[in-house]
Design a protein around this nucleic acid. Structure first.
Lengths: 191, 191
DNA sequence: ACCTGAACACCGTTCAAGT
DNA sequence: ACCTGAACACCGTTCAAGT
């Protein structure tokens, strides 16, 4: 927000975390289209190119934001692996739906690169293992669930189908849950 | 490609179809990032703003391109509705995978607005009706299948998972088919 | 190493003017 | 109605210079 109080060699004390946080504020106020490096820099009170000292480019910033959002998806209880698998997907769905403008980016970009995405992936693999769906079949199953979840979140946030009246969020969520259970049944067998 | 041979009031004989075709050529050569109105205009040999005489804005152009791509998905045989439903989804998947840079846009934008998407939607509804899954349940089922298909195509074209070796297109396609059958079974019941 | 200032090569879109 | 020319308000990114 503040303008350049600094002269040529002065430091702003910037960090990667601060930049990501500023990017999320900018995203919240200005939307995805308004998420420019220049806008984030303005939010931080630095020159536009100052960001390049901490992140490679705009893609790297977007990836960092995407992963940061996944912090909201908590580790599920390890008791029942089938339930944990479902919970992690439902929480992811709810988190994504709260960030409508980002959902598309999750599908097009490498959604599983960041540490948060990796954390969730490890938990899912563990659950699948314990359910007897390890190895290659488990990989495919995990992938299918993730793709399905992000895809449905994308629908929930973006689409209004043709002549049809707009669907309520709760109806869409319910339909998401139904499909999710069909997929889980297919992957690990009926309960 | 050609430059402005025309003087101030001369017509270029542009049409919406020509613009969409030029946009698809530009997309093929320059990618999604290179699909600018200025690039398309250059491809057509007109001024950048000439496009505004035929389309509202860049979003409208992108929507037109997205729908145009779906022309490649043919009407399936009406004999077996369950098979037709599956065929239409598989053809859509294959078509989307052939247009990697567009897949993300299908999920974020209104994918079901254009005439081609509508054509496919009508066929799907008919199949679901004949399989005894009409009404609200059929709507949800259709949506789930579409979301799943586009989502999986997005994965197939964009993702390379974490430490894992890149997956072959045929493996991903096979996994897509498995999940699709689970969903169809869930929606219309086992065969 | 971190940041500023200035520049480069782009964008989408608007508006007046021409036929 | 359709198109050009020119402009406006933006972009991401690079590069030299400063501490």
């Amino acid at each position: 927000m503040e303008r350049s109080r600094r002269s040529r060699g002065e430091r702003a004390g910037l960090s990667r975390e601060q930049i990501v946080a500023a990017a999320r504020r900018t995203l919240a106020t200005r939307g995805l289209a308004g998420l420019s490096l220049r806008a984030v820099a303005a939010e931080l009170g630095v020159a536009p190119n100052a960001i390049y000292s901490h992140l490679d480019d705009k893609n790297a910033l977007l990836d960092a934001v995407l992963d940061d959002v996944l912090t909201a998806v908590r580790n599920p209880s390890a008791k029942n692996p089938r339930r944990a698998l479902r919970t992690i997907m439902v929480d992811t769905y709810d988190t994504l739906v709260e960030h409508p403008s980002l959902v598309g980016a999750y599908l097009t970009r490498q959604g599983s690169r960041g540490p948060e995405a990796q954390r969730l992936g490890v938990i899912m693999d563990d659950c699948l293992d314990r359910l007897g769906a390890g190895g290659r079949a488990g990989e495919a199953g995990r992938r299918t669930m993730i793709v399905y979840t992000i895809g449905y979140a994308a629908f929930a946030t973006g689409w209004t189908a043709d002549g049809e009246q707009p669907l309520s969020a709760s109806r869409v969520r319910r339909d998401f849950l139904a499909g999710l259970d069909w997929l889980i049944n297919g992957i690990v067998g009926p309960p």
